[in-house]
């Protein structure tokens, strides 16, 4: 009979101390969200927009008649096709994982001036929850990539518990409803009743491009456009799927423990 306890002790600590230190995040080598330098766009070029499978990229004519690139990272599934199609270096690879935002508009690059300017109020972190948050997850029709990464959060490498963040079985004990998937017609009601069962104050987080906008599955006969028009969303985290470090960072951003990294579709370098 093996001694599992001894085995465990012998293996030592496997957990990264990121984001407290700069220990590895586990994402070394990843290809992240594409980045853009619209000033390098050729005139009349539509290469990225026409290949993007989720219509995340559009090239619009501005009032003065110039082409204007608009990228909605809330629709991006990180397929890298635009980067490969771009004839100049206007679209290029990055290792930026998807960053969480509190405003949907912050995921859009190239919106008039800065979306943030038109904001009614700056959202504040939920008071009294900074150090402890309980999450109820609902799969509203994901491809299970998001679940695979959410499950990874509790593996010894990330060990989400160390940050005071826990998954809870019942919506009655939950502060945050974390939703994945484009919200299929059959998951609509179960999702709404899970939300209704939560005590206030309660918040909703859209995890993955499907939950943010419907992603690759949106439209059609069985899916909507993610949480749009279904539940009020407090945190948006696109990504296909967002990796465990991205999910951790977005949760900490929501709790006010790390600053947001994206504003008006631009990354804060």
């Amino acid at each position: 009979m093996p001694f599992w306890t001894f085995f465990g002790l012998q293996k030592g600590n496997a957990t990264t101390s990121w984001p407290k230190s700069d220990e590895p995040t586990g994402q070394e080598g990843m290809l992240g969200m594409p980045r853009f330098r619209p000033e390098l766009c050729g005139s009349e070029c539509n290469a990225c927009a026409s290949i993007c499978p989720t219509q995340a990229i559009t090239v619009e004519k501005s009032k003065s008649g110039e082409d204007r690139l608009r990228v909605d990272y809330g629709r991006c599934v990180v397929c890298q096709l635009c980067v490969e199609a771009c004839p100049s270096e206007a679209a290029f690879r990055s290792s930026d994982w998807a960053f969480g935002t509190r405003e949907r508009g912050d995921l859009v690059l190239g919106e008039h001036a800065d979306v943030a300017a038109g904001r009614q109020h700056e959202r504040v972190a939920p008071d009294g929850f900074r150090r402890s948050l309980h999450i109820r997850h609902v799969d509203a029709g994901s491809c299970n990539g998001c679940e695979s990464e959410l499950q990874a959060l509790n593996n010894p490498f990330y060990n989400l518990h160390r940050l005071g963040i826990f998954f809870t079985p019942s919506p009655r004990f939950a502060d945050l409803l974390l939703v994945t998937g484009p919200v299929t017609y059959a998951m609509h009601e179960p999702l709404r009743s899970a939300y209704a069962a939560m005590p206030g104050p309660r918040w909703v987080m859209a995890v993955g491009t499907c939950a943010v906008s419907g992603g690759i599955a949106s439209g059609g006969y069985a899916c909507g456009n993610g949480l749009e028009g279904v539940l009020p969303v407090e945190v948006y985290l696109p990504g296909c799927p967002p990796n465990p470090a991205a999910i951790m960072e977005a949760l900490l951003m929501f709790l006010g423990r790390v600053p947001p990294r994206i504003r008006g579709g631009r990354f804060a370098d």
Binding site: P53, D139, I216, C223
Partner: peptide, 20 residues
């Protein structure tokens, strides 16, 4: 419950988009 109608989403798409 998770039926997304994925097969239908392929219709009319390019081969690249189909792979994605």
């Amino acid at each position: 419950f998770k039926h997304r109608g994925m097969e239908k989403r392929f219709e009319g798409r390019s081969l690249e988009a189909g792979t994605v």
